[in-house]
């Protein structure tokens, strides 16, 4: 198959709507969970899993697969919803999210057959794991798989992130892509009020990373174009008309997003970081997703 997979905007949009449905359905069923940051990552998940990632749900241990590492690991509602949407398990499982004895743990548990490469939950840890995976894959013969890590601007407050970022550049991990879901809200409020992280582009650039900024992280065309650039870079190619992008460096994709995107009463509300919709709110959310989708 050719990668990235040829782009069909309508198809990706309808899949993104499925992911959003999964997010509100799973958190409603669980009575807890993290819808806000899941919704801000919905398009990122959708484009990545449906058009960018080399993976095979029928052969999840395929050695040549690209690896996805969830660094902002609380957004399991979004992660599990895309895994269900692409077929790692049935979407009905989402209703057992966070339930006793079920594999869909509150924060991910390593479960490669279900598409979960590594567990997570403690912020600041998994970009280092992604660095190790990228380094390990580069040691293997043949085409080098890529590693995609999904993080957030809030997670970049953890000092260990910058250790990881430093080491990825030092070891020239051009097969590593760190996506920042930049939704500007964290549990205690606006990121700029809690602990400012800007300017992220300059920070990554000064740590010797490529930076691709996406103005609207919910614009699937823009996301796709960014991943196409990373695809060239990870294959050691320059990107036409982008002389600043260096095919020997790791790449950060900074996606400006809206927390709670797609559900009117959740959008830009820090309070929906870690709160589940009740039945009435679920109904409204599903109506909005279906009408917009």
């Amino acid at each position: 198959m050719q990668y990235p997979i040829p782009f069909d905007e309508n198809d990706i949009q309808s899949k993104t709507a499925q992911i959003r449905e999964g997010i509100v359905v799973s958190t409603n069923a669980a009575g807890s969970g993290h819808p806000g940051g899941s919704l801000s990552s919905a398009e990122i998940f959708s484009v990545l899993y449906n058009a960018v990632l080399r993976h095979d749900t029928a052969n999840p241990t395929w050695e040549g697969r690209d690896r996805f590492v969830l660094s902002k690991a609380h957004i399991t509602p979004g992660f599990y919803s895309v895994l269900a949407q692409v077929g790692y398990f049935n979407a009905n499982e989402l209703k057992s999210f966070r339930k006793f004895g079920h594999f869909l743990q509150g924060h991910p548990k390593k479960d490669i057959p279900h598409g979960i490469e590594v567990g997570g939950g403690s912020l600041g840890q998994n970009l280092s794991v992604a660095v190790g995976i990228a380094l390990g894959l580069k040691r293997k013969p043949g085409q080098t798989p890529r590693v995609f890590d999904l993080s957030s601007e809030g997670e970049l407050q953890e000092g260990s992130m910058w250790e990881a970022i430093m080491s990825a550049a030092h070891y020239n991990l051009n097969n590593l892509c760190c996506i920042i879901d930049y939704n500007r809200l964290q549990i205690d409020g606006k990121t700029e009020d809690v602990m400012e992280v800007a300017p992220l582009d300059k920070k990554f650039e000064s740590f010797n990373w490529n930076v691709i900024e996406i103005k609207d992280g919910h614009d699937i065309k823009e996301l796709y174009e960014a991943f196409k650039k990373f695809n060239l870079l990870s294959n050691g190619h320059a990107v036409p008309n982008n002389d600043n992008l260096d095919p020997t460096k790791p790449t950060a994709i900074i996606a400006n997003t809206i927390k709670g995107k797609g559900i009117s009463f959740m959008e830009n509300q820090a309070g929906w970081h870690g709160k589940a919709p009740n039945d009435e709110q679920l109904e409204q959310a599903l109506n909005e997703i279906r009408n917009n989708g």
């Binding site: 590594v118 794991v129 660095v131 190790g132 380094l135 990881a164 080491s167």
Partner: peptide
């Protein structure tokens, strides 16, 4: 950078 070292090792173990 010990925290990173330990988890880079974790990542390396995940690639066999």
């Amino acid at each position: 950078a010990e925290q990173n070292m330990v988890n880079v090792a974790a990542g390396l173990s995940l690639t066999g």
